[in-house]
Design a binder for these strands. Structure first.
Lengths: 150, 150
DNA sequence: ACACTGGTGGGTAAGTGTGGGTAGAAGAGG
DNA sequence: CCTCTTCTACCCACACTTACCCACCAGTGT
């Protein structure tokens, strides 16, 4: 079970390679075989799943009803741009251009560990995302941790 | 179960290392493996959780719905700056620059034991926090201990 | 007075992030 | 069908940061 956490701002080189921070690298289970699946996130960002975690998602999707239009749409969105990528000798993964373009990532990337997966953001987009939040961290924390929806 | 209490003012060296007061060190359960997770607090301070206590928080987060935008925001805020750190041979932990900057901690730190976790403050910020409280200790105590929201 | 505990400071080697070069594979065009 | 071009994957090299190690000082209790 992976436990990615922390964040870094790293550079994306001219070949579209992104380094996985060593701290996160150490959280990858050996079952992942140094393989990741990259797909588009719910916001304007990318999700990077180690293989062992991705398999769990695949299984969930398999269980969905093929006849439900909403389910089909969800599957298409999730899988449309899903790409596998392996770590190179320097522990980097190569991200396809289309995905980088989707998340508007160019020379710099904000890398965020979220337990079972890693998120990739354009640093500016992430800032904008934070700024767009209506409630403060403390307010949301109270709601979430104590199930107080007030 | 940890029971941190008391407070100290210690120095932060040029490498961002902070000593854990020996009194608190003795409160750390062996299950923590001399490992801590540091993250940002709700106020302008840092939370330091021994590993065994942090795992409890992680499990709460894992149970959250990934599809709820508020939950995602909370996870990002909590995990964004979360860093693991191990005690060195001198019983110190290293705090990353970004976290020290967030809490405005430079050469000195106010260390506060709060049962399950330790808080790190800039001594001046802590003073300001105390000064900003509208109600007296006694008034708040009455509200908290007797659920009197008066 | 000495030993021991607790807090502080700094040097060095290994690890980590970044950039570029080259060869092989895949695709387009003659 | 062969050739040229483009893209990808693997390799190597360098600069910087981190973590580990050792040393010192002050206070306390024996």
């Amino acid at each position: 079970m992976s436990v990615f956490k922390g964040s870094n701002i790293y550079s994306v080189d001219s070949k579209g390679r992104i380094n996985i921070p060593s701290r996160m690298r150490k959280s990858i289970s050996p079952e992942a075989n140094e393989t990741f699946t990259i797909t588009r996130g719910f916001e304007k960002c990318l999700f990077v799943y180690p293989q062992d975690e991705w398999v769990k998602i695949e299984n969930k999707i398999r269980a969905l009803s093929q006849t439900n239009p909403q389910h089909r749409f969800f599957m298409r969105m999730l899988l449309q741009q899903a790409t596998e990528s392996q770590l190179d000798a320097q522990a980097r993964i190569t991200i396809p251009k289309e995905l980088l373009e989707f998340a508007a990532i160019d020379s710099e990337v904000f890398i965020l560990g979220l337990l079972d997966h890693i998120e990739l953001w354009n640093p500016q987009e992430y800032k904008a995302y934070l700024a767009a939040q209506q409630k403060s961290y403390a307010e949301v924390a109270e709601m979430v941790l104590w199930n107080n929806d007030g």
